[in-house]
C-alpha cells in the first residue's frame, strides 16, 4: 500500500465575464476561488447576502470602491446594478491594477469640498 496520496485534480472550470466577455479560470493564481473578472473587475450577483443563499437576481455587479479593513489588504466593494445589493471580495494578485487604482483615487479626484483647505488645518 503506497503512502503517497494522488494529487487532487486541479480545478479547470472557467466562467465568462458578464461585462467584458473574458473567459477566466475559476481559481486565482493563489488557488483561491475567484468571484470577479481580473480584467474589468465586474462580478455577477449569485450570492444573496441578506438571506444567506443563492440569489435569483443574476445582475452585473460593478466595482464601486476599494476599502482597507484592518490588516492592510485591499477589499473590493461591488454593487449590483439591478438590485443594489452590495458585497465585498478580496483583491486577487492578477487583478487589473490600473482599474483598481482608478477606483481607489476616484473620490480624491472629485472631492465635494476644496482639499487645499487641509493644508491650513
Amino acid at each position: 500500500m503506497s503512502t503517497t496520496e494522488p494529487e487532487p485534480a486541479p480545478d479547470v472550470s472557467a466562467f465568462t465575464c458578464v461585462r467584458c466577455g473574458l473567459t477566466v479560470s475559476a481559481l486565482d493564481p493563489d488557488g483561491g476561488p475567484r468571484d470577479h473578472c481580473p480584467s474589468c473587475l465586474s462580478s455577477r450577483h449569485v450570492v444573496d447576502r441578506t438571506d444567506e443563499g443563492a440569489s435569483r437576481c443574476g445582475g452585473r455587479m460593478a466595482p464601486i470602491s476599494v476599502a482597507v479593513p484592518r490588516g492592510g489588504a485591499w477589499l473590493l466593494i461591488h454593487r449590483c446594478t439591478l438590485c443594489d445589493e452590495m458585497s465585498g471580495s478580496a483583491v486577487a494578485t492578477d487583478d487589473n491594477h490600473l482599474v483598481l487604482m482608478r477606483i481607489a483615487v476616484r473620490p480624491l479626484a472629485d472631492p465635494p469640498f476644496p482639499l487645499d483647505l487641509f493644508g491650513e488645518v
Binding site: R49, T50, I64, S65, V66, A67, V68, P69, L75, I77, R79, M86, S87, G88, R106, P107, D110, P111, P112
Partner: peptide, 29 residues
C-alpha cells in the same frame, strides 16, 4: 464607515459595514 465610493455624477457615497454581521450599505454623504 468602511470606505468611500463615487457616483457617476461625482457625489461621494459612504460605505458602511456592520461590525456584528458584516452587512454592507451605502449612503450619500
Amino acid at each position: 464607515a468602511l470606505s468611500l465610493a463615487t457616483r457617476p455624477d461625482g457625489e461621494w457615497l459612504l460605505v458602511h459595514r456592520c461590525v456584528r454581521c458584516g452587512e454592507l450599505s451605502a449612503n450619500r454623504v
